[in-house]
Design a protein around this nucleic acid. Structure first.
Lengths: 371, 371
DNA sequence: TGACATGTGTGTAACGATACACAAATCAGC
DNA sequence: GCTGATTTGTGTATCGTTACACACATGTCA
């Protein structure tokens, strides 16, 4: 199997000779069947079949024609993430739908933070890129820019020359923050990673630092500065939460922040346990994803806390599990957003893609119904 | 965005001129950095940066070198299926893991049953293929064969020259069939599609045809012949169920078969409702997927039937939802199988990949605990 | 019938890179 | 200081296809 001798590829010229036509006729027979007569097409097909010609060499075709028939999706995550993370999965489902509509294949370009990432991107034989949220300082963005191919960035960062699709995360975070923080005395936030380092941990929550535990994990000491996050989505959600808390008269430094390195309920549960215990246990937690919120819910249950009695809680995305859990959340269709990104990247945007903002809305459920 | 003028690509020759070195030096600087001196590499890098050279053209590189850095995965389904279907998702996660390990990108080639499918396959710029279950008579298989590239087929069909990975579905189906059919008087099977037509429907279940309703949907009249299914996996599971039922002394023609066109609980629920009502209502159902079994469970609940009291039930795959539902099922790691397919396709099989069969085991839970 | 459009086949010249072979410079070992 | 190995740079040929321009036959319309 692995050692199978590579059969020499049959070439178009050989097919042409066997069919008694010119090379161009063969080329047209494949690339623009209407350009040749039925008779010639049949001769070509027969010869190709007989010789075992697999069709035009994709590399040669793309070299000459400048098209590949591939849309590249760059994921700032491990490749398996594309199939494991529910948010990424829904986004990609939308991308895939549009690819299928246009007869394009989908190439997933894994980008895991190693120096060779840039090579992966430049080596990708694609006609356009869709980029799933990455950090402002990710060199991959510049590499994509350098290719000169159409590219659409979802979530961030913004760049001149690259299209951009995202919801207004700050406004949405403020909306859900108002709900979850209303009447809270000790708010908390469960955040996505702040930057490419993807450190996880819990801040101690000033101004009670003197009494508080030092915070866990590997986060640098001191509070979290929302403006310092290099992930645009994270940054804007943090700002939105800050806005909401400020509206209640609170200071951001009172807000304890836990940062998850992954979008998993498992990790969230561990971190939430820290937020929910000790002298500064949170009584309201805004989580940046439903998965994370479900982790909080599990931690709360284990600690004997009730939601919303002892703790109000919000998630993000309105995933399938949100409604059964009574989770207040932000609904946005990642699938639609994926489709939109793909349409723009492929040069077939609908009028709505151009003119309409990405929509979101607050879904209020019992998890924020403070008694 | 869509109308952006395509910038002309900077070529390697231009970089070479700007850097004051030969084209080959530039080529080596990218493709084999150890082949050139640090000094030359720095000059090249600087010139490339200055001119905005995006790196070697992937098409040209693959034309000349014969390698693309892509693994192609052919899905005999709509492209969104890759991200929507839980089974496909786990399989692909394993494939993705191995791709990442070897620095390969992953290209999903959608194959939806249209005549252009074959073109999609031959146009795919990949170094090897992994094929997710398709029908014996799918022309795509021949197209893949014709490319001469290494290819691994998961589930079926088998072909000379193509590697093959699958569990022993017949034995596994017999094992779970024994469990679910034990003590049953009116068995049923909820099946995946039988062939590329993907017709759905319910057989009436001989030998009581005279009294039975004609069966619904678009299935051809008469019973289902397990041996006639062109999907190897479906065929072998049907045979296994038949084996198990035969061991109880039953005849295959007594088994009512419902065929789902998709792997969705929704469709399964509708079909199961038919299996569970009427004069020949089933008291045991073997489903080919956990998703389908969960659909049966919902239908049973709606009809006021208890499991396993009124109905024994089995699924397949031991997905996350199986344990909470008490579902007897066949456990197999599709992720491992995906990884194995990818390793073989990329020419890096482990000894275990070569020598060991794909494993499965029966997981007995309450859904087959007939009182 | 002439003028002009349309349909169909062909030859030539790229597309942008890398494999290969060779040459010059450098280095190690004695 | 000589030999052979290693390092590093270069020129040439070529990978397999399609864009383009042209040639010729046929069809259409006034």
């Amino acid at each position: 199997m692995s050692g199978r001798a590579a059969r020499r590829r049959v070439t178009m010229a050989e097919v042409a000779r066997a069919a008694g036509v010119s090379v161009m006729t063969v080329s047209y027979a494949y690339g623009r069947p209407g350009r040749v007569s039925d008779e010639a097409r049949a001769k070509v097909r027969e010869a190709a079949e007989r010789l075992g010609y697999p069709g035009p060499h994709p590399g040669a075709r793309s070299l000459r024609s400048g098209r590949t028939g591939n849309l590249g999706v760059v994921l700032g995550e491990h490749l398996t993430y594309a199939f494991d993370d529910p948010q990424a999965t829904r986004f990609l489902s939308g991308v895939a739908q549009v690819c299928a509509d246009h007869g394009m294949a989908l190439t997933l370009v894994p980008v895991t933070g190693s120096p060779s990432d840039v090579d992966r991107v430049t080596e990708a034989a694609v006609d356009a890129f869709v980029v799933w949220t990455t950090a402002d300082d990710d060199p991959v963005i510049d590499a994509i820019s350098a290719t000169g191919l159409p590219a659409v960035v979802h979530g961030g960062p913004r760049r001149d020359g690259l299209s951009f699709v995202a919801a207004d995360d700050r406004a949405a975070a403020a909306a859900v923050g108002r709900e979850v923080f209303a009447g809270a005395r000790r708010p908390g936030v469960l955040s996505f990673p702040l930057d490419r380092a993807r450190l996880s941990g819990v801040t101690s929550g000033a101004p009670l630092d003197d009494a508080a535990p030092a915070g866990s994990g590997t986060l640098p000491p001191g509070g979290i500065d929302p403006d310092a996050s290099t992930f645009r989505v994270t940054r804007r959600r943090l700002r939105g939460y800050r806005d909401a808390w400020a509206e209640t008269g609170g200071e951001w430094s009172w807000v304890r922040v836990a940062v998850c390195s992954t979008n998993s309920a498992r990790e969230a549960e561990t971190l939430a346990a820290e937020l929910l215990t000790g002298p500064h246990a949170c009584d309201a937690i805004a989580a940046m994803g439903d998965e994370l919120a479900l982790g909080v819910l599990r931690a709360a249950t284990r600690l004997g806390l009730t939601v919303p009695g002892d703790l109000t809680l919000s998630g993000w995305d309105d995933s399938d599990a949100a409604a059964p859990a009574g989770l207040t959340t932000i609904a946005q269709s990642l699938r639609d957003q994926g489709a939109r990104c793909a349409r723009i990247a492929l040069g077939h945007p609908t009028p709505a893609d151009r003119d309409t903002e990405v929509t979101w809305h607050l879904v209020s459920r019992t998890s924020t119904l403070r008694p």
